Amino acid sequence: MTGRKPYLGPPKTKTSARTVELPDVVSVALARHLETYGPVEVEINDETDPRKPVRRTVRLLFSLPTLNPIHRATWSHYWSPPARSAGIPKGTGLHCLRRYLATR
């Protein structure tokens, strides 16, 4: 793993914070996931206010098998197998899927 440890940060821009549609199929899948695994409590650096960084406990919906936050350097290791099983082409990440939903 390279770079810094996972942390909470502010949105990329002022317009990044917004409400987006959550399809029923996703809501059902999230509910099943939470029934099976529950949220994981971890301590993480919260830099959402860069002037006042704090360390706090958060509840994550998704984590590594070690119950640690998912780091961007290891994300593809966990994403690739189910994506290939679902027929999603190699090189397609979550950003592309966000755009796919927006065009539906």
Rank of each mutant, 00 (worst) to 15 (best):
M1R: 02
T2F: 09
T2H: 11
T2Y: 10
R4G: 15
K5F: 11
K5S: 14
P6L: 06
P6V: 01
P10C: 08
P11V: 04
P11R: 02
K12P: 05
T13P: 02
T13W: 07
S16G: 05
T19F: 06
P23Y: 12
D24P: 02
D24L: 01
V25M: 14
V25T: 14
V25Y: 10
A29I: 02
A29M: 09
L30F: 02
A31Q: 09
A31N: 15
A31L: 13
A31P: 01
H33I: 07
L34P: 00
E35M: 07
E35Q: 10
T36M: 04
E41S: 00
V42C: 01
V42I: 02
I44N: 00
N45P: 03
N45F: 07
E47A: 12
E47M: 11
T48Y: 01
D49W: 08
P50Q: 01
R51F: 15
K52H: 15
V54R: 10
R55M: 10
L61K: 04
F62G: 05
P65K: 03
T66I: 04
L67I: 06
N68R: 11
P69M: 01
P69N: 08
P69H: 07
R72N: 15
R72V: 14
T74F: 10
W75N: 13
W79V: 02
S80R: 12
S80Q: 12
P81W: 01
P81I: 00
A83K: 01
A83E: 03
R84A: 15
S85Y: 11
A86L: 12
A86S: 08
T92Y: 12
G93P: 07
G93V: 05
C96P: 03
C96R: 15
L97R: 05
L97C: 10
L97P: 04
R98I: 09
R99W: 13
Y100L: 15
T103V: 13
T103R: 14
R104D: 11
R104K: 13
